[in-house]
Design a protein around this nucleic acid. Sequence first.
DNA 1: AAAAGTACCAACCGCCGGTAG
DNA 2: ACTACCGGCGGTTGGTACTTT
Length: 236
Amino acid sequence: MDGTMGWRIADQEWRKGPWTPAEDKLLSDYVALHGEGRWSSVAGCSGLKRNGKSCRLRWVNYLRPGLKKGQLTPQEEGIIIELHALWGNKWSTIARYLPGRTDNEIKNYWRTHFKKQEKPSKNKKNRKFEDHNSYTEDQMVKGTINNTKLDESEENNIGMIIEQTHVMLQETATNFTSPMATGVQHQQNPCMLAQDVASWWDTVADDGLWSGFMWNQDHDHHPNQAMVEQPFTPCF
DNA sequence: AAAAGTACCAACCGCCGGTAG
DNA sequence: ACTACCGGCGGTTGGTACTTT
């Protein structure tokens, strides 16, 4: 089944591992000349000893213009949290609402920060993060937060935040689904969703409580699971 | 100072859907 | 209709840097 056109071929014929600056330049030059796509022909045209898959990944995740480097902003984190609550591990879908961020980056971020809450770390950095992010919804509702440094005022506000979050999430879901129900989903600019979320996020962030909530990521089924399957129109 | 633990990130792998021949 | 290839996606792994003990 494996062809010889560059996508699938005997492994030993392709270079693997970290990319060198020279390889990056070859790939960049190739894309500048031929545009994105046609990954299977990169090796033949550019002299790279990388398969098409590897080239595409390198371009999308690292070389593509407009990529943001560095830490995610609180706004971006909020969008990730919200969209993950809506869609689950649809990283590429979530990434479309975060211009300049890649699905790989978002996936890595999520796994690093949220996935393994069940195994709290003693690491200082991680503790710092957990102080703000490691509460399940249930814990918050019950007000039985372990290992926190929240002061009283913050604790008192958690319930309010939860309620506000639920309302905003429902509103967001409603706004997002109703156009689909009326068959005009393709006319809606999906960036509006990101704006809505970001706008709401600013509200929460302004209270200094942005990270005081977290859905229980261990849920296999999301509260809006049906929406995960809904089609949408990409921003770009 | 060194070992162990942890976080972060780049890259690989397998699978799947679309599509051209 | 069938087959093979391409492009894309999500899961996973391995390496490196950083932090803690």
